[in-house]
Design a protein around this nucleic acid. Structure first.
Length: 604
RNA sequence: GGACCGAUAGCUCAGCUGGAUAGAGUACCUGACUACGAAUCAGGGGGUCGGGGGUUCGAAUCCUCCUCGGUCCGCCA
């Protein structure tokens, strides 16, 4: 029986988070204890009533030597209570010390309270992990809030490249994280099939069509010369024969455009699938035109007095060559935090790109989402304020929009930078990356960096098997657990889910073992922080730390045989230790699940 | 000219939305193999958190002004 089987089994019994028994966050429990103790002080008159407790935190101290948990309660309350922090701390310490979970309380520094918890608490954490399986760390924090995560949304003009890959991985992991923390998540892709770039695509495909019929063609500037359009042109030639040869654009453009964008979306869907990304909704920009939906969204803004005819100030400094003052239809985005108002109509009367985007977000709002998240490339940075302004205006401030920008990915191979250029048709594609290193490595590596910092992706380094490579290091820890469980089976020691749930966890007492349990106790809290900040990279870093604690314990078994997971002639102790290993395995599996990475059974 | 994002150990990066003596990895020294393998672990040295000012019990974190990189800037999406 493996951890993988264990979790699969548990998932069958318990298909989702169950808020009733989903407490499981030890830090939240202890914070509750602190708050209750403060109440008791108020009752006794040792503290004035009516104090705001929102800033009282219980956290793991930065330095483990300070204890297991630290609270800032005394310092936060000192000023409003008109008391000295250390006095509050001392009184609070007395009350906390009476709790059976607490074995020592110390006042430290300016008024921190450092708590040490009984081994039984940490043993209890292990029991919770095994009981809850993949449910351990899931929370109802999101309270079923409907969240829309829009990501990738690449123009349907070619295969996805590396920049899109980062957005795809980030968006997908963020969506999983939000799901894991109790949100009702929709993954969505906005297809930009309504603008001029799909006409360019259609003309490019038309050239490939002529080429397939034997003509010599050249690709002028402003067309897409990439090879990926060759089969599209060929398919078109097969279907239509020479019907469109020497015909003007108005004969074939619309049909080729539809045909081509469909073909590109098939390509993009396949690219995403190779990364393990699956969208719930593909939303077509084109569906907004000629249907009154753009007009409806702008009418909503107009009713709020936010649409007017006016002339924008010329940009200061760098002046466009052909600048001339021009009266335009403008959205008063400055009323919602933007720097300048934004045009929604071009001088020829057509919509600017911003108009359908407003309508699209209006549509999301009317679909009833409680929160919106857009994942965009760094080149859309200038777009954030106006979109937030639009959503704020359309929803009367009721629906928050968070825009996460993913910064550039710099590719390295053999010590040389890889360049990409979409125009030249020589960009490095998502498929190139997957073929070289596989989806698991791609995903994990792209999540080991904050989204708003640029990322170096070194093809050689990400495949390296060393501690320097977090993908390997975390997978290795998982594989080691698998190995122990396999060996237990060979030795005839029961290590199935039922046996481990019944193990006597009181046998887990060594400091190295408890360190691992402490790290496991942090998981639910970590998930909440990561979900609150929309930062899935925190999960990747946590897993790396957990793996580190586990490897440390493992290797101490070299010096101290009593720390080895399998104890000959002592089934009970072996099972307790394997319960610990399995708990590590469960959390690694859950964490990797959020990142979209498959845990390995053994290293090759 | 303006907007947004970065800047933390020689190098690559974390840092819990304001907490204690700022942490990992790598590299460099010193040690350790009966399990998934030394592909790992234990220990050591290594810092003006880009710079200046401010806010307060307390700042890498918040506000402000600079410096250097990146992205972008009305009829392209």
């Amino acid at each position: 029986m493996s951890c993988g089987e264990l979790t699969t089994h548990a998932r069958m019994i318990n298909p989702g988070p169950n808020p009733k028994d989903a407490v499981m966050n030890l830090f939240a429990d202890i914070r509750l204890l602190v708050l209750e103790s403060l109440d008791a002080m108020v009752t006794k008159g040792a503290l004035p009533g009516g104090l705001a407790m929102a800033n009282v935190t219980v956290e793991p101290p930065r330095d483990a030597a300070h204890g297991d948990m630290a609270t800032n309660a005394a310092m936060v309350l000192a000023k409003p209570a008109g008391m000295k922090p250390r006095d509050i701390a001392a009184a609070l310490a007395d009350i906390l010390a009476a709790d059976p979970r607490v074995i020592s309380v110390e006042v430290a520094g300016p008024g921190f309270l450092n708590l040490r918890l009984a081994p039984a608490v940490w043993q209890g954490v292990l029991g919770q992990v095994l009981q809850s399986g993949p449910g351990y760390g899931r929370s109802d924090m999101g309270a079923g809030q409907k969240v829309n995560v829009e990501f990738v949304s690449a123009n349907p003009t070619g295969p996805l490249h590396v920049g899109h890959t980062r957005g795809a991985v980030f968006g997908d992991a963020l969506a999983s994280l939000l799901d894991y923390s109790g949100h009702d998540v929709t993954r969505e892709y906005y297809i930009n099939d309504g603008g001029a770039q799909v006409d360019v695509l259609a003309r490019s495909v038309y050239l490939r069509y002529l080429e397939a019929l034997g003509q010599e063609v050249a690709f002028p500037d402003g067309t897409y010369p990439g090879d990926y359009l060759v089969p599209v042109g060929a398919a078109l030639a097969k279907e239509k024969g020479d019907a469109w040869v020497d015909q003007p654009e108005d004969v074939w453009l619309a049909e080729v455009r539809t045909y081509s964008t469909d073909a590109m979306m098939d390509l993009i869907r396949a690219d995403l699938a190779s990364l393990g990304v699956h969208m719930d909704v593909f939303f077509s920009e084109k569906s907004l035109y000629g249907t009154g939906r753009i007009e409806a969204a702008l009418a909503d803004l107009e009713n709020k007095g936010l649409i007017y005819e006016g002339v924008l100030e010329p940009p200061k400094g760098k002046m466009p060559d052909d600048w001339e003052p021009r009266e335009q239809t403008l959205f008063k985005s400055t009323a919602h935090g933007d720097d300048v108002d934004r045009p929604v109509k071009k001088s020829d009367g057509g919509w600017t790109y911003f108009a359908p985007d407003i309508a699209y977000h209006f549509d999301k709002i009317t679909r009833g989402f409680d929160a919106l998240i857009d994942v965009l490339g760094a080149d859309h940075g200038g777009y954030v304020k106006r979109m937030k302004a639009a959503v704020s205006a359309l929803s009367d401030g009721a629906v928050p929009l968070d825009i996460k920008l993913t910064q550039l990915v710099k590719l390295w191979k053999d010590g040389q930078p890889f360049k990409m250029s979409k125009r030249a048709g020589t960009f490095v594609t998502l498929r190139d990356v997957i073929d070289l290193v596989g989806p698991d490595v791609t995903r994990f590596v792209m999540l080991t960096r904050k989204n708003d910092a640029s990322l170096d992706f070194d093809f050689d380094k990400v495949l390296e098997q060393s501690r320097d490579n977090p993908v390997f290091y975390v997978q290795y820890a998982h594989a080691r657990v698998m190995s122990v469980l396999r060996r237990a089976a060979e030795a005839g020691i029961a290590a199935d889910a039922a046996a481990l749930k019944g193990a006597d966890l009181g046998l887990i007492t060594h400091e190295s073992e408890l360190t691992v349990a402490r790290k496991l106790a942090e998981w639910p809290r970590l998930v909440e922080i990561a979900a609150r900040t929309n930062e899935p990279h925190r999960v990747a870093f946590y897993l790396y730390e957990l793996a580190g604690d586990f490897h440390a314990l493992w290797n101490r078994g070299n010096d101290l045989p009593e720390l080895r997971f399998l104890q000959p002639d002592d089934v009970a102790t072996s099972q307790a230790k394997m319960a610990l290993a399995s708990a590590v395995c469960v959390v690694i599996s859950s964490g990797l699940g959020i990142l979209g990475v498959t845990p390995v059974q053994e290293m090759r």
